[in-house]
Simulated assay, not measured.
Amino acid sequence: MIRDNQKSQRIFWSCILPEPLIAKYGLSFAACNFSFNLMSGGGFDKVYSSLPVYVGGEMDSDAFADERFELVYDKLRKRGGVFQKLAVLKEQWMIFRKIPRGAFVWLYNLNILNALLFVLLKVFRPSVQLNIIVLDFTPVKKGWGANSVFLRLINMAHGRICLASSPLFKSQNSVVLPGVVPQSKEEIPVISNPKASFLLSGVLLKEISQIELVLKVFAKLPQCELHITGTKGDEILLEHYAAIYNNIHWHGQLPFANYLELMHSVTFQLSTRDINYPENECNFPSKIIEALLHNRAIVSTIHYPQLNGLNYFEVPSDEEGLINRIQEICELSKSDMYTYVNQGARVREIFNTEIWNRQMAKLEANK
């Protein structure tokens, strides 16, 4: 038992695979990194993992050998098609049977992969305390779609940790924590000589990265280097800009070690979300916490109150305004720039796993 002062098990459900298999099976790097960061603090007695509906066929044996979690993967997935959808339901039943009475359960988001599990525990094992870590949620403006149902379940949970503040979520027994950093003593390089080098990484969809805007802006800023890595982007467009403009570099999707090496070579991490998209109302970009931990400066199109106490650049989302603001940033003196870089130690203080474990325990203890 990890938590000697607790008799009840604390159980975590997430959607993870060992690091070398994340890309192979199309899982979210951000989701896996967040989960492993949180797990590194030793706050859970047991961790279960389920996989997205689109994952099927034979599963690599290494996926079941990771001592950090138990992967629940039903043989129905191997048959493909509708059987993969049935497997998702069966897997939730299998996990339900594994969870002991009186356990504290924490779910990574509330979605199709765990909603049945939530209901089964709520109805048939009421002694189990259900809590949600709300990382991503897209509001539904009208109607009764699946997300409306998921929102009702989120607000029926005993407690919630949200990455962003939203009136959609029940405020009682809820707390906002935008991210978690791993329990590690790894040496992270500091920035001693800031330069006009920028990184855009992660999901490169329009609503997440405004990729076309960023490309247009840096095409007019030849003095600034732009590096791009990630998934779900228009690769033809990215290759086109990289071929024409010497300051724009498209790296494709990189293994995590190579991604960190690239991050450590730049000064600025871009977070260029479109505030007008509902996808960005109820979440927080994990790349921001990650880059701050790694001593990079943040350039964000959205103001985040949960970053109070940390320094970052807020920039507009229109082309002309963004060009002008980046030019201003690059013209700052070194002394001014040093207030925006090398904040990793402060990030460890306020977003470490001990903070998360204490908050979880506090929410669990509330009646």
Rank of each mutant, 00 (worst) to 15 (best):
E364R: 09
E261H: 12
K220R: 15
H227P: 08
F137R: 02
V203A: 04
P52V: 13
S333W: 04
N283A: 05
S300L: 14
K24H: 07
K90H: 06
P285M: 07
Y312P: 01
W250F: 15
I350M: 14
R346Q: 12
S286W: 00
R3G: 06
E187G: 01
I248C: 13
I329M: 06
L17R: 03
A243R: 14
G102M: 03
Y340M: 02
H249K: 15
R296W: 02
L293T: 07
T138E: 10
K46I: 00
V134G: 02
N324H: 12
F351G: 02
N131W: 06
F313T: 07
L205W: 06
Q172T: 13
I191D: 04
V315P: 00
V190K: 08
F34S: 03
P305F: 11
F268T: 01
N352C: 10
A361L: 14
H264M: 04
L293A: 05
M39Q: 10
N147Y: 10
G56Q: 11
S174H: 06
E279V: 09
D4P: 02
S127G: 02
E239I: 00
S184N: 12
W13H: 15
K85F: 11
I329E: 03
D74Q: 10
P18T: 09
G43K: 01
T267E: 02
A146V: 11
K141I: 02
C32G: 13
F150V: 00
D45H: 03
Q92D: 07
K142R: 14
T301D: 11
E314M: 05
H251C: 12
F137I: 04
Y259G: 05
L86A: 14
C32D: 06
Q172N: 08
L307S: 05
R125F: 00
L107M: 15
E349G: 05
Q253F: 09
L215V: 11
S50A: 13
G233H: 10
L163T: 13
A242H: 10
G26Q: 09
V341H: 10
Y241T: 08
Y241K: 02
I11G: 00
E207T: 14
P100N: 01
F268R: 01
Q6C: 12
V175K: 15
V341F: 02
W144L: 13
N33P: 00
Q343K: 10
R3S: 12
L200S: 10
I112P: 00
E319I: 06
E261V: 05
A164L: 01
M94E: 13
L117P: 03
N131R: 12
K90P: 02
I329S: 07
P139R: 09
F124W: 14
L213Y: 05
K334S: 11
I133Y: 11
G143S: 06
V190W: 00
P20T: 10
I154N: 08
L226R: 03
V55I: 14
T272L: 01
